[in-house]
């Protein structure tokens, strides 16, 4: 894909160039203000991640799931086998001891994501700040990423959608998954819908933050208590970490 910072405009723009510049200072008193972060974009110095403490996660609670569905407009069609799920609650029972655990599973935002490796067009991609996304503009719907993902994190849009939300474009024939509420991150909210809901309505089991910043809450907790990754044996270094599994 083209990464040039200026779009290749036709001659027309240069003819109307003077007017284009004037367009910046619009009607009296109204100015275009762009936030400072907009120009620079996501930084590779940052790596966003989640820490989930399964000791605090209650089996009956699905506050994070409900919040995610609301945030991204995942209304579903009442067909569980084909409806999208960005995040799901998984209940575990140890086969030997019978001990139980409950935890949310979503896209693990791997450092070495298999979905990105297998995608033929490069639609599966990892942003500089570690968020794994689907570029639905060039996704052809081959579903190879769904075959490759070890976490079953992805969904295919099996039917026509209407009334999508402005910040979560999604449509028939493309693959989608948890995007770590990228619209919130780019807006500077510093949290995701699931984490917000877990803190408000759940067991405060989830922390969002910058894994690369040693002073962030998530990094301090990771340093103090350690953590586990799901299927750490694949060595994908996921950005979503768990305690208590």
């Amino acid at each position: 894909m083209s990464n040039e910072s200026k779009p290749d405009l036709s001659r027309r723009q240069f003819l109307g160039g003077a007017a284009a510049v004037a367009g910046l200072a619009v009607a009296p008193g109204v100015f275009l203000v762009e936030s400072a972060s907009a120009a620079t974009g996501a930084s590779s110095k940052v790596r966003w991640g989640l820490l989930i403490d399964t000791n605090l996660c209650d089996s009956g609670c699905d506050a994070c799931v409900t919040a995610c569905n609301k945030e991204h407009g995942l209304n579903g069609h009442g067909r569980p086998a084909t409806d999208a799920q960005y995040i799901r609650k998984v209940d575990l029972k140890d086969r030997k001891t019978g001990a139980t655990r409950s935890l949310p599973v979503m896209c693990q935002h791997c450092e070495h994501p298999p979905c990105v490796d297998v995608c033929p067009t490069g639609a599966s991609m990892k942003r500089p700040d570690g968020i794994v996304l689907v570029d639905k503009h060039i996704c052809i719907g081959c579903r190879y990423c769904m075959m490759a993902c070890p976490y079953k994190a992805r969904s295919f849009v099996h039917e026509d959608l209407t009334d999508q939300l402005p910040h979560t474009p999604r449509g028939k024939g493309t693959v989608e998954s948890c995007n770590l509420c990228v619209h919130r991150i780019d807006r500077g909210d510093g949290t995701t819908a699931c984490v917000e809901a877990c803190n408000r309505d759940g067991g405060s089991a989830m922390v969002f933050g910058d894994l690369n910043d040693p002073n962030s809450e998530i990094s301090r907790r990771l340093a103090e208590f350690g953590s586990a990754a799901i299927r750490a044996d694949f060595k994908l270094n996921p950005g979503v970490r768990y305690r208590g599994i």
Partner: peptide, 25 residues
């Protein structure tokens, strides 16, 4: 069978050379 067969041209113009699918094309 693709989700977006209308985007065949995308498969021909965007390549991720780590993908076996891309090699197969």
């Amino acid at each position: 069978d693709l989700g977006r067969p209308d985007r065949l041209i995308v498969a021909m113009t965007y390549y991720n050379f780590k993908s076996i699918f891309a090699w197969n094309i």
